[in-house]
């Protein structure tokens, strides 16, 4: 007997909840062969604003957690991704028209990158911080601190790997993230959000918007309460203007990257979203 399929509704991920777009809009997500896959929420600028508010509220707790704890939480995400491998592989096969082997390889690479970045959480400060030599009886210590709220335009040509490669490094230092997922391949991003919602990541630390990056990104770039913007997936947008409006509100900016090496794992992606704090402390005089 045939049964009626129950298609899943893909919604946004803001502040630990899965709301529909405030605008009520959706758009059709199509498979590589042009078939209907699902309806995804089409986020509006107000959704972006709500996501920034949620991220701002989450920064304190996430940045205040110990680096060791952040590493554990990030590693836990990799564990959960491993448990839902089959779902991600199937989604990538459907959306990108990839072979099973290629889809599996993408999921494996995404999980490996989570693990790689998770490992950095309690180590990057040792590499990028410093005890500076000064002419006086003082310790002079520089430590990296998170920038705050980071907006990310995820790479547009992959479902999962690009998203993970851009989001994970921003989280390592203790930033909260608002990420605009790939417009063509948004479903894995929301599935990843479901993984995050059931992991130990505090609500609001990661917020996922689906929809048109061309529509949402300018609002994030000009938002005064966003501290940095990663334009890695924005090469198709008018990103020079985005960079200009980001400069108006003193944001750190990472420029677009293209090709298979886009957002390749690097310590630089972690330190791009940190600020160096330098403190003086007297030495004991005996």
């Amino acid at each position: 007997m045939s049964r009626l399929a129950v298609p899943k509704t893909y919604k946004l991920y803001i502040g630990g909840a899965f709301p529909r777009s405030e605008s009520g809009r959706t758009y059709e997500v199509l498979s590589a062969s042009g078939g209907f896959l699902a309806n995804a929420a089409k986020a509006s600028r107000k959704d972006a604003r709500d996501a920034v508010v949620a991220a701002r509220a989450a920064v304190g707790g996430w940045a205040g957690a110990t680096a060791y704890n952040r590493g554990q939480v990030l590693y836990r995400i990799a564990e959960l991704l491993e448990g839902r491998r089959a779902q991600f592989v199937a989604e990538i096969e459907d959306a990108e028209g990839a072979t099973r082997a290629a889809a599996s390889a993408q999921v494996d690479e995404a999980i490996d990158r989570w693990v790689w970045y998770a490992g950095w959480a309690d180590k990057f400060a040792q590499v990028t911080g410093n005890a500076n030599p000064v002419a006086g009886p003082y310790f002079n210590i520089s430590v990296p601190e998170p920038t705050g709220v980071v907006a990310i335009v995820a790479p547009q040509d992959t479902s999962l790997l690009g998203l993970v490669s851009a989001v994970a490094p921003a989280l390592v230092a203790g930033n909260a993230v608002v990420v605009v997922a790939s417009e063509r391949f948004p479903l894995s991003a929301i599935s990843l959000a479901e993984v995050l919602a059931t992991s130990d990541v505090p609500k609001g630390v990661v917020n996922v918007l689906t929809g048109s990056p061309a529509e949402i990104t300018p609002w994030l770039a000009s938002h005064a309460d966003v501290n940095a913007i990663d334009l890695v997936g924005a090469s198709a947008l008018d990103w020079v203007d985005l960079e200009i409006s980001a400069a108006d509100t003193l944001k750190r900016v990472l420029r677009p990257e293209q090709g298979p090496d886009a957002a390749a794992p690097a310590l630089g992606r972690i330190t791009a979203f940190t600020e160096t704090k330098t403190v003086w402390h007297t030495k004991s005089m005996r």
Binding site: R56, W219, S222, H223, A224, D225
Partner: peptide
């Protein structure tokens, strides 16, 4: 015409 933040 752009969003402000609590720092302002």
């Amino acid at each position: 015409s752009h969003y402000s933040g609590p720092d302002y």
